[in-house]
């Protein structure tokens, strides 16, 4: 039997990546604005944050079976997806209005309203935190998906969102530098967060593989020694975490620029793998064997005209 489109696909992983990164970019910008000082972040970075979330929204809509009816996802306040959709909408609007404060354009008459700017920074902080965290919350609540279930995935997603957001802030600062910005100290912070990311993922897999149910252990084994192990070890751990960690510690702009791209590659790879791992459900007795015997849809007997 074909499993095509019976589970979430790569577009949702890309949505998680862009939405999480965009949300965390708002968090970083808001914290700097509220607690360190304004004019530390370029207009480019302030625009890229909500833009990333908008791109994420686009992928989310394309993932739907009926994309033209996407507005319906706002309708059930009890569903976490609805909550996430509303928060993402608020974050995008608030993020773009906040970014407008840095654009010298006559129609933006509110540019001198400092109170509004700070209020929007606060809104960005809250909504950005929710947007960056909620994919992890969404996945962690799935009782029947052994790789996701539990609160730890929430922390891993938030951490990854922060790491990718800081990397993109650094990249934006390289393209559009802001003199005396606190962002100039980012590489060391990023290296520390990447170290934490590597350690936490290793711990997560070790706990899943050794201290939980058989289904959770089997799902973790796919990452440790199964079909996802090469992608995990080479693409995520080596190229997406360890290599940029080292490169960030070398004070050469070229290395640090390349490192930011590697971090983004690691972030999207991790989300792809995590979403793929959700295809593994806690199967019922005999179910796996039953489904393995079903036709895939391309068999000759299915295509033959029997009449």
């Amino acid at each position: 039997m074909s499993e095509k489109h019976q589970t979430w696909g790569w577009m949702l992983a890309v949505d998680f990546f862009f939405a999480g990164m965009g949300g965390a970019m708002l968090i970083v910008a808001a914290i700097i604005d509220l607690f360190i000082g304004k004019n530390q972040i370029s207009v480019l970075a302030n625009i890229v944050g909500p833009l990333c979330m908008s791109v994420g929204c686009g992928f989310l809509i394309l993932e739907l079976g009926r994309p033209l009816q996407a507005w319906r996802v706002f309708m059930n306040p009890k569903a976490i997806l609805t909550f996430g959709a509303w928060m993402m909408t608020f974050a995008i609007i608030s993020g773009f209005v906040y970014a407008s404060f840095g654009i010298d354009f006559g129609l933006f008459f509110w540019r001198d309203w400092g109170f509004l700017r700070q209020l929007l920074a606060l809104v960005n902080l809250v909504t950005g935190l929710v947007v960056a965290t909620y994919p992890g919350v969404l996945l962690g609540r799935h009782k029947g998906r052994p790789f996701w279930v539990g609160p730890a995935i929430m922390g891993l997603f938030l951490l990854s969102s922060l790491v990718t957001a800081l990397a993109l802030h650094l990249l934006c600062a390289m393209i559009a530098p802001v003199e005396g910005s606190v962002l100039n100290n980012l590489p060391k912070l990023l290296a520390a967060l990447l170290l934490a990311q590597g350690l936490l993922w290793a711990g997560y897999l070790w706990i899943k593989a050794s201290g939980t149910t058989a289904a959770e252990a089997a799902s973790a084994q796919r990452w440790i020694s199964g079909d996802l192990s090469k992608r995990f070890k080479i693409s995520f751990m080596l190229l997406g975490t360890l290599l940029p960690l080292v490169m960030f510690l070398i004070p050469v702009s070229l290395f640090q620029g390349l490192a930011t791209l590697l971090v983004l590659f690691g972030g999207v790879t991790m989300r792809m793998m995590t979403v793929t791992s959700g295809n593994d459900r806690t199967f019922l007795p005999g179910e796996l064997q039953y489904r393995s015997r079903l036709p895939h849809g391309h068999e000759r007997f299915l295509k033959k005209n029997w009449i």
């Binding site: 095509k4 489109h5 019976q6 589970t7 979430w8 993932e63 739907l64 079976g65 009926r66 994309p67 009816q69 996407a70 319906r72 996802v73 309708m75 569903a79 997806l81 799935h142 009782k143 029947g144 998906r145 959700g278 459900r281 806690t282 199967f283 019922l284 179910e287």
Partner: peptide, 27 residues
């Protein structure tokens, strides 16, 4: 008519009892 085919319910169901209809886009 209300289903948009987001597959949230398919992923949430621990029994694998829901299917995405490729023709209609709904579950």
């Amino acid at each position: 008519k209300k289903c948009v085919g987001c597959l949230s319910c398919i992923m949430a169901c621990p029994y694998g009892a829901r299917y995405h209809n490729h023709e209609t886009g709904a579950v």
